[in-house]
Amino acid sequence: MGEQQSHLTITQTGQVTAVEFTDRKILEEFSISEIGDELAALLEKQSAPKILLCFRNVEHLSSAALGMLITLNKKVGEVDGKLKLSDISPQIYEVFRITKLNKLFDIYDTADQAIKSF
């Protein structure tokens, strides 16, 4: 990643890697591609990873961001890992609901609930 600033804050809680987005908007191709790369790098470090994506700070996201999440979900599944999502605001949840991705992803109200469910 060089000197590029990270889009993610990563903390380890037991076996769960909790990832918080630092960007308020996950809209544009450049940043989405960088986020995808950061998340893919995270997967390479672990076998059967348990990853929680926390959307606490996220106010906007686009269909390209949804695509990145779907790709990540697939990659996590390929290495027998689990991906969960939490703290999605009602506005953002509506984007998941319209696209029916709330049926594809395992979504929790809070990070604590998600961590306990792994």
Binding site: S62, G67, M68, I70, V95, I98, T99, K100, K103, L104
Partner: peptide
Amino acid sequence: DCTDVSRLSIPSGRGITLMRAY
């Protein structure tokens, strides 16, 4: 239709659906 259950795991093709919804 990107909301078809068989297409949910395809990473692209949601922009038009979102525009029409919003």
